[in-house]
Design a protein around this nucleic acid. Sequence first.
DNA 1: ATCTTCGGACACTCAATGAG
DNA 2: TCATTGAGTGTCCGAAGATC
Length: 496
Amino acid sequence: MNIPPQQQYQEQDQQQQQPSPLLKQESQIKQEPIQLSTSQYQQQNFQPVPPYASQQQQHHGHTQSYNSLQGSPIGALNSYSNPYNLNSHLMGLSMQSGSTSAASLTSSSLAPASVAAGGIGASNISGSTTPAIAYASAPSSPIMNNLQYNPSGNSHYNQNSSSLYHQPTYQQQHQQYSNQHTYSSQQQQQHQHSNQHSVQGLSSSNLTSSFYPTSPPLQHQQQQYQPQQQHGTSTQFNAMPPAPPRQQSQYAPLVPPLSDAQYAQYHQLLGSTFSSAASTPYHSNQSTPYSSMPTSPTLEYQQLADPNMVQKPKRRQVKNACVNCQKACKKCDEGRPCTRCIKYGLTDTCVDSTRKVRKKGVKRGPYKRRIPQTQIGSASASTTPTMRHAVLPNGPAGYMSEPVTALNSPTQSHLLPFTSSAIGSLEFGYGGNAGSSSSSYSFQHPRMENSYVAPYTTSYSGPSLYTAPYGMNDYSNVGGNTNNTNNTNNNSSNLS
DNA sequence: ATCTTCGGACACTCAATGAG
DNA sequence: TCATTGAGTGTCCGAAGATC
Ligand SMILES: [Zn+2]
Ligand SMILES: [Zn+2]
């Protein structure tokens, strides 16, 4: 067996790791300057895998040997030509799993500042008010939960999220998703720290990320952020603070953008919630991405009482994670180098991972039969759990909402200065990959690729629209991927 | 306490399928 | 032809384990 060049690199890396007691991660990251430019790297180490080259033992994109390398960013650079052929390259190599580990961040740590700052006033809500509102403002990003209201309009991370510290700006974030939501640089540069340190070789926009490769000492964090919390008392907020700056969430916008006037109104309506949210900031150490964590107990109970209330925003993925993030299973972003790589000094190796090309010509068996539109109304009268649409509030006039309106439960959504049919990706019950494509109860709007495609017509992909499939599931594994139980129908239909 | 690993939920893509 | 399905494949959350 030929030893692939990757292995050689890997071994070197192992020898060169000299963890220092201080700044361990940083030293690990930086001690071996990366010689290759990105293009060189691509030429030398990045061999595109021919389609279907390895159709193996992959587990949702993970491979065993791939995992064994995960910790080493530098080793990763060299040994990890790409996640797919890496697998075959390294199969059978005995990898020392102790061979460093510097790359990983906590999952929340990569959230962009702009994300942290939240969506429509979300940063202030720190939880949410009504689910509808929560949805609209997408406060559920991991970071959101840690944010507190800041009347000054500057968003800060609160002291609890350790790794949220130095985030670079997010100029390039999510461009592809958002034609309509281009961030202004001003919005993105909310995040400033008084004691930034320059790091050689990094541009100023980058260096913010480098000083604390991991988390800063807690004390430090608290010093910096304490004021936020101190002011975050309910009395402080009895008077309605000015509406905070509007910011962009990493999650796809779930409602049509509000006008400024609407936003202000909306913000006012949230007043009472604000105070409670501010007085009891959600210091969840766990970043709970789908924070279905209403801040107000009232709402919590409401939610319990009304299972139709929806809470889960959709996680948004980059189209292509960089190799380093991919390897570490951590959140990447659109920028190259990405935030995480900047943070860990891996900018040279921050390149897109390669993606397989999908096979063609694979027969899939019959699809479920579609029901003619004329039958939709009656079909939707079903009371089975297939009534996914029951959750949604009615859309704005002119936007067709779900076929059945009687089931729309009253939620606080009616308090909002808007109604929306553009709620994306609503789910209730178990919306996820229940293991059977036909038993998913999720309701999801059609593809959010472009962030928000307005106006929506509420999509409906529930089984109730369909008669029973002919050949039920005999074809479920036509593609041969037995691992995949995932079948949430994300990009489902549109009744138009 | 902090960092790393990685199982698995779920997001996204797009060729096959089916209806008009 | 176009809308829809749903398998294929990717991202990355977050808990558990490892390490300091
Ligand atoms: Zn990345
Ligand atoms: Zn990167």
